[in-house]
Design a binder for these strands. Structure first.
Length: 352
DNA sequence: AACCAAGTCAACCGCTTACTA
DNA sequence: TTAGTAAGCGGTTGACTTGGT
């Protein structure tokens, strides 16, 4: 496939558009429509490349563009859709009338991403961040707190939690580095849980004996006992509500966060997305998203402001052009099966 | 008032897919 | 089937703005 020639040639103008150029473009499109973008600049009397004209029109001059601050509702919608679609800005934009993909992308990068990070959540997976470096600001804040309010109960408790977090993080690191961790579903036929490397073979540790691990650690972590784990269905195929795993022998399906699992054979997934249960899972006490607890997400029944999600495809995106640079959030959510369960809130509380 | 750092956002770049001859 | 072109997309850049010192 050849690349379209770039506009550097012929000394075409680049950079910010003037009002005169805008007017020329608007006038031309009003009269003739855009037709071929490549041919448009000459016909419209613009010293720009067609691509530049198209961008200017679609991102700025189009009459149906809504400008100005994003409303709270729009913000919620973006968060909601991003948790499902990842960085599919154009797909997200189709559900926010008047907003362009570029605008949404900018808004995400400058506002929403930071917001999630500040709340301690990974903006790509929309899940609590479990890496030590992500927790570092909290630990530092804790240290400062202790300096100013030494030995307060709350501060002491936080300190203990921070120390435990560091320990757990170290454990996780050991497992991952030993196994070249790959989130194949753990086998449930016995208490021996096997972990696989990228070739779907056992990693260096071979079969990791979860039972032994639990026994060894249950003294310091009360929730780490098998009956607890079983009752919480962590290792059951049923009711994996906190982080649902899509079991599929061909390994092409992905784990989708927030209990979201769409029927891949169904083109219209709007019902799945709009009506899916995104709320905090009280039964298992396992929040799977920052949005669950904080009501940032619109409730499934109040999402009437969402346009139908009829064009969204959550198929295997391996061949998608957008996959060349960064994974979308849903993809990344699939990359950590049990460690994330392991670090669920009840675990963290008990282990501290 | 001047400087600097951080934030914002329009525009560009480079890639991909779709379409067509 | 192949190659060229058009258009769409997401990431990145850089000019501009804002706020702090």
């Amino acid at each position: 496939m050849g690349r379209s020639p770039c506009c550097d040639e012929n000394g075409l103008k680049k950079g910010p558009w003037t009002t005169e150029e805008d007017q020329l473009l608007v006038d031309y499109i009003d009269k003739h429509g855009h037709g071929s973008w490549r041919a448009l600049p000459k016909l419209a009397g613009l010293n720009r490349c067609g691509k530049s004209c198209r961008l200017r029109w679609t991102n700025y001059l189009r009459p149906d563009i809504k400008r100005g601050k994003f409303s709270e509702e729009e913000e919620n919608t973006i968060l909601h859709l991003h948790s499902i679609l990842g960085n599919k800005w154009s797909a997200i934009a189709t559900h926010l009338s008047g907003r362009t993909d570029n605008e949404i992308k900018n808004f995400w990068n400058t506002h929403l991403k930071k917001k999630l990070i500040q709340m301690g959540y990974d903006p790509m997976t929309h899940r609590p961040r479990t890496d030590l470096f992500a927790s570092l600001p909290n630990i530092i804040a804790l240290a400062n707190l202790l300096q100013h309010h030494p030995l307060e109960d709350h501060a002491v408790r936080l300190q203990v939690e921070a120390a435990q977090l560091a320990k757990i993080q170290y454990l996780q690191f050991l497992f991952q580095s030993s196994n070249n961790y790959n989130p194949m579903p753990p086998t449930t036929s016995s208490n021996t849980t096997q972990y696989y490397n990228n070739n779907n073979t056992l990693g260096d540790l071979g079969a990791f004996n979860f039972t032994d691990f639990v026994k060894e650690n249950s003294a310091s972590a009360p929730s780490l006992n098998l009956s607890n784990l079983e009752s919480q269905s962590l290792f059951s195929n049923e009711n994996n509500s906190g982080s649902q795993l899509l079991h599929n022998p061909d390994h092409n399906t992905q784990q989708v966060p927030f209990n979201f699992q769409t029927n891949l054979n169904n083109n219209d997934i709007s019902d799945d997305i709009n009506c899916h249960k995104f709320n905090f899972d009280h039964e298992n006490n396992s929040p799977s998203s920052p949005l669950n607890n904080t009501n940032i997400l619109p409730s499934p029944h109040s999402s009437s402001h969402l346009l139908p999600l009829t064009e969204i495809s959550i198929s295997n995106n391996q061949g998608d052009s957008s996959s060349n640079s960064t994974n979308n959030g849903a993809d990344q959510g699939a990359s950590s099966y049990w460690p994330e369960l392991f670090f669920e809130e009840h675990f963290m509380h008990d282990i501290s």
